[in-house]
């Protein structure tokens, strides 16, 4: 917010964004965006409002609760170990995201910036594994976890999700857009690939890295199936598993599901708001350094 809020007099800026800005002022883009954004906001506000409703009213079309039940939020914590599930979800997703970004970036560097024999063959192999539906590798993966004695553990939740072809593919595409002259120049200055990777390529890939981090965190945070079959102990449950409690045949406690969901997405919104400006500003900053 602060970065954009400060813009009072539009400075004459170069580049794509500035060009759009000068144009955009007159197109009424604000109005168009606002109308569209409101339709996006509806389900979210509905969810927040429903989380304050008594159970009987959740299914009614009237969006406002007749009585505001703030204690719905407390009941979520009372009925399940919500705090623990919260911690587990964030903890697991954070590790996965970290490992995924690091290893994918390294692999993508090897695929995009280094020349070696068989490079494209290996990359296509990577790509091909993306085309296999995830459901089918779940049972073999499970067998691997049994052999490694990683069932019912944090490591079992984190490690299989931490390496993937998706991140490699995404970052490779990003690295391809960086002009080759940059690392050639660095190489002439005597930089090792390791130095080029960290000091030239990674800063320029910031937008891609942030994008991948958001995708990975989001995907893992909401993952249901793998934790479901992997975890047995209560203290390892993640949020999607913990929320099963509110959805039994004895009646779905939809209001509590909503309250839990609202709390569920708070970390995601924080992450997104913090990360998104890097997506847009990343390269400009990088370009100055480079």
């Amino acid at each position: 917010m602060s970065a954009t809020g400060r813009v009072q007099e539009p400075k004459p800026q170069a580049g794509f964004s500035a060009w759009w800005y000068r144009r955009g002022r007159f197109t009424g883009a604000h109005i168009a965006l606002t109308i569209m954004a409101v339709t996006m906001l509806v389900p979210f506000s509905w969810m927040v409002l429903a989380s304050f409703k008594p159970l009987q009213e959740v299914e009614q079309l009237n969006p406002f609760p007749s009585v505001w039940r703030f204690d719905n939020y407390l009941r979520v914590f009372e009925q399940v170990s919500f705090a623990r599930y919260y911690f587990n979800s964030i903890f697991v997703a954070a590790w996965v995201t970290f490992l995924q970004c690091l290893t994918s970036a390294m692999a993508a560097y090897a695929f995009a910036r280094l020349r070696w024999r068989g490079r494209d063959m290996v990359f296509r192999l990577y790509l091909a594994t993306l085309m296999i539906p995830g459901v089918v590798v779940m049972i073999p993966n499970y067998t691997v976890m049994v052999k490694l004695h990683l069932l019912d553990s944090y490591v079992g939740l984190i490690v299989p999700a931490a390496f993937g072809a998706f991140g490699t593919f995404l970052l490779r595409q990003f690295m391809l857009t960086i002009p080759a002259s940059l690392d050639e120049a660095a190489e002439i200055d005597g930089a090792t690939p390791w130095q080029i990777f960290w000091d030239v390529i990674m800063p320029l890939c910031r937008a891609g890295l942030v994008t991948l981090a958001i995708f990975t965190f989001l995907g893992n945070y909401g993952s249901f199936f793998w934790p479901l079959i992997l975890v047995k102990s209560e203290h390892l449950r993640t949020l999607p598993i913990g929320m099963l409690y509110f959805d039994s045949v004895y009646g779905r406690q939809t209001n509590l599901i909503m309250a839990a969901s609202v709390m569920n997405i708070v970390p995601l919104i924080i992450l997104f708001v913090a990360a998104q400006r890097h997506i847009v500003r990343g390269v400009q900053l990088g370009a100055i350094k480079g």
Partner: peptide, 12 residues
């Protein structure tokens, strides 16, 4: 029964 889930709609 906008809520779905088996039985829950009818019960509520």
């Amino acid at each position: 029964a906008t809520a779905g889930g088996w039985g829950s709609g009818t019960i509520t």
